[in-house]
């Protein structure tokens, strides 16, 4: 089993708390790093290893992002793509936390639900 992954939040980077051992993945905060591909590369790599080895699990994903810039958004989409694939062999629930006043974040979550139909989409108003 791949070890859990924890990265403390920084000004331009979210808190990454991937408790693979408990099938609980959480991204929280803001994301606008200088180089999104560089920051998310190792995170997605760890996630890929975990998902490759995981079958029949109930995976919970908590996404609580206040602000994400365009290059982070692009990479987050590959993360959702991976989760959607994994949802064929697992149950993957996406808890999408949003500020009810913020249409953009709410719509982004709704678009994800439309595109990645294998995910159990659960919008959570803050």
């Amino acid at each position: 089993m791949i070890p859990d992954l924890y990265l403390a939040p920084e000004r331009d980077k979210p808190e990454v708390d991937f408790k693979f051992s408990r099938h609980h993945l959480s991204l929280k905060g803001e994301t606008y790093p200088e180089n999104a591909a560089q920051f998310y590369g190792p995170i997605l790599a760890a996630l890929r290893v975990y998902l490759n080895d995981t079958r029949g699990a109930h995976i919970t994903v908590d996404m609580d992002l206040i602000y994400f810039n365009s290059s982070s958004t692009k990479i987050l989409l590959s993360l959702f793509e991976m989760l959607d694939q994994a949802a064929r062999d697992n149950q993957v629930q996406l808890n999408w936390h949003y500020d009810p006043e913020d249409e953009t974040v709410q719509e982004f979550g709704a678009d994800l639900a439309e595109d990645y139909t294998a995910l159990v989409y659960n919008p959570v108003a803050k």
Binding site: Y32, I66, Y67, N69, S70, D99, E101, D102, E103, T104
Partner: peptide, 17 residues
């Protein structure tokens, strides 16, 4: 506050980056 602040901040970050 709220979405207005986020939009201003987002616009600022996208322009600067």
């Amino acid at each position: 506050k709220g979405p207005t602040a986020r939009r201003i901040f987002s616009t600022f970050i996208e322009m600067m980056q």
